[in-house]
Design a protein around this nucleic acid. Structure first.
Lengths: 143, 143
DNA sequence: GTCAGTGCAAACCCTTTGCAGAAAG
DNA sequence: CTTTCTGCAAAGGGTTTGCACTGAC
């Protein structure tokens, strides 16, 4: 979906329009942070990145906007930590490493993990997506 | 690991001892609820199931005990919903369906989803486990 | 003027913590 | 006795909400 980072302001606005998100000033600021590089950021991190220079966007707007972006498919929510949600600008199918010691999250290189066909879904449901999380820890250094 | 449900009180205590968990009265009550059937329960649900007849276990103890069980490998935490943690008595490797509309969680029948080899892990880390969650929604009924 | 978007603060909810009392051996 | 657990209430932290204000058309 995104083939380079960072996206320019104009490209961000374009993408928002494509996804049916009205590109207001604050939303564009937030989207520019998200699409500056492939990354995984929490709402709190977005808040401080956006307001690094001067306060531009309030906390409520950050949360509302991230929720809106996720609903519209502009970004993907990654649920790996019970204490916070991460937002991922890469919406194409891919998986994640999660370091339970440090809280770091990385992308798993596409195709490096083979996934078979979907099993039969529960009656009356349709698939929305598959989340694969490989939990890792810092390997004990044996001195 | 568990080959039948429900586990009797004695079997639950046995299992706790095997895992190095001191089987106190409250912990046994909680474990009996967890191992009564294959299921996925939140802390809140455990709380009300345990105290269905009469109040036996406090909220703090429920949370402390579930955390202890998870650390000791007696149960598995399932992180699919940013608002709460589910506890799963089945610790053998398996995956999950999660209905984003209803919040329901099911087991995916073992082996119905093929997983390839693990990709190379990030430097200095070791794998702790893989969580695969297939998110589904209620399919729109087209009348 | 109208309606979507924003900001602030308060409210919420799940979870954790501090500490005193109870239980176990 | 000493150590481990438990319970209560309060605190914590991420997220959501209510409502008035702002801004774009």
């Amino acid at each position: 979906m995104i083939d380079k980072y960072p996206l320019s302001r104009a490209e961000v606005i374009d993408l928002m329009r494509q996804k049916g998100v009205n590109p207001t000033q604050q939303r564009v600021e937030i989207a520019q942070v998200l699409f500056s590089e492939p990354q995984h950021v929490s709402a709190e991190q977005v808040m401080s990145l956006v307001n690094k220079q001067r306060a531009i966007v309030s906390k409520a707007t950050v949360y509302n906007t991230l929720g809106l972006f996720a609903r519209k498919g502009l970004v993907r929510e990654v649920i790996v930590d019970p204490t916070k949600v991460f937002y991922d600008p890469t919406t194409a199918p891919h998986h994640h490493f999660y370091n339970i010691d440090t809280g770091e999250l990385w992308d798993v290189e596409q195709n490096s993990l083979m996934l078979g066909d979907l099993p039969p879904l529960p009656e009356g449901t349709k698939a929305e997506g598959i989340d694969v999380v490989i939990r890792v820890s810092n390997s004990a250094v044996t001195p």
